[in-house]
Design a protein around this nucleic acid. Structure first.
Lengths: 202, 202
DNA sequence: GTCTATATGTAGATAGAC
DNA sequence: GTCTATCTACATATAGAC
């Protein structure tokens, strides 16, 4: 059926576009390369998505929502603070496993066009506010040291994201192949939460 | 004198190129924009630096060496481990103050052409090995918990670099203007070292 | 050394056949 | 819906005058 084929092609384009955009960024991506990877030609790209910008935004929105959905949520549960931190870090790790290049991509595009990114970031607003509240409470109960909740948030995000952003450097410096590096990241998924907690526990 | 004028122009080009390359990356940079910012025209760019690639590499090498020089060194001193960590974090903070966009730039270009970057990274090889040795010793003396030194190194780098890479997000989420953000970073310059130490102290 | 003008290549986008 | 061929715009790079 025509409808099925249409959808199939559109999907192939989106997959190819995601792959190339994530690796090369908006400016580095050539429509020809997307077409090649999708197994079609350039004209068809413009038939489905009017121009490069729209294709980019399509990929970006889908990818962004898909990426962090369910991760921020982990911070909003009615669990003790430390439990929420552990769950968040674990969920982050799982989410990034599905799309390892996304952190790098997101930060690369951040300089070029901050607007889109910041909209995406707002999705986690409620979760962060809940988290900040929990941190303040834990502080007042004397469970953790006095600390600006924003600093703590940055610390958590940094440890979760940075290893993926700097992956090639880490592999090079540590002399790791892909398999060893994956293991290194797996170790981190529990290590990070425990060290974060050690760093703030009163 | 001709020699002086020549040098001045070359310097103006390099300054302009650094500014644009750091903000837009290799692919996003237009030679026209570099020329405009240097107050000359495109042809002169090619007169001084044969092509875009060479101009880029010139900027990149100078900027890279200038950027991290003296920072890695802090890890090699004959101080206790914790002292080295504190000094390293502080030096890192100072270095990045001089070139705030460099972390973002470096990580953006990492995907496009890993080769140049990895050469730059090797400059810190000796320092890292010394640091790894110190970590092992501290572990054997029971001063710190058992931890893969590479994980610790990644943790330190992550906390130092990530805030600059994600600066626009942090400002947006935290509702900070430039001044407030700078203050936020200043707080980190001591906070980071102390929390790193807390996270591993036995 | 610095400029204007131009050549060359390539990327994004469209027209039109099938 | 998919293709080939083409247009247009622009970026890098060069030629040549001053």
């Amino acid at each position: 059926m025509a409808a099925e084929k249409e959808t199939a092609t559109e999907q192939r384009i989106l997959d190819a576009a995601r792959s190339v955009f994530l690796r090369k960024g908006m400016m580095g991506t050539r429509m020809q390369e997307v077409a090649d990877e999708a197994g079609i030609n350039k004209a068809l790209l413009h038939y489905y998505f009017r121009d490069k910008q729209r294709l980019f935004e399509e990929v970006f929105c889908v990818c962004g929502k898909h990426g962090m959905q369910g991760v921020w949520e982990e911070l909003t549960h009615d669990r003790p603070l430390f439990g929420n931190i552990r769950a968040f870090v674990a969920a982050f790790h799982t989410a990034i496993e599905r799309e390892p290049l996304f952190p790098h991509f997101l930060l690369s595009e951040l300089q070029r066009d901050p607007q889109h990114l910041l909209k995406l970031v707002d999705l986690g607003k409620g979760a962060r506010e809940h988290f900040f509240g929990q941190v303040m409470e834990a502080q007042q109960r004397g469970e953790i040291i006095p600390i600006d909740p924003r600093q703590l948030m940055v610390n958590i995000m940094a440890w979760c994201q940075f290893p993926h952003v700097a992956a090639p450097i880490i592999k090079h410096v540590g002399g790791m192949d892909q398999k060893t590096f994956k293991q290194f990241l797996n170790e981190r998924s529990t290590l990070v939460a425990e060290l974060i907690i050690r760093s703030i526990r009163a």
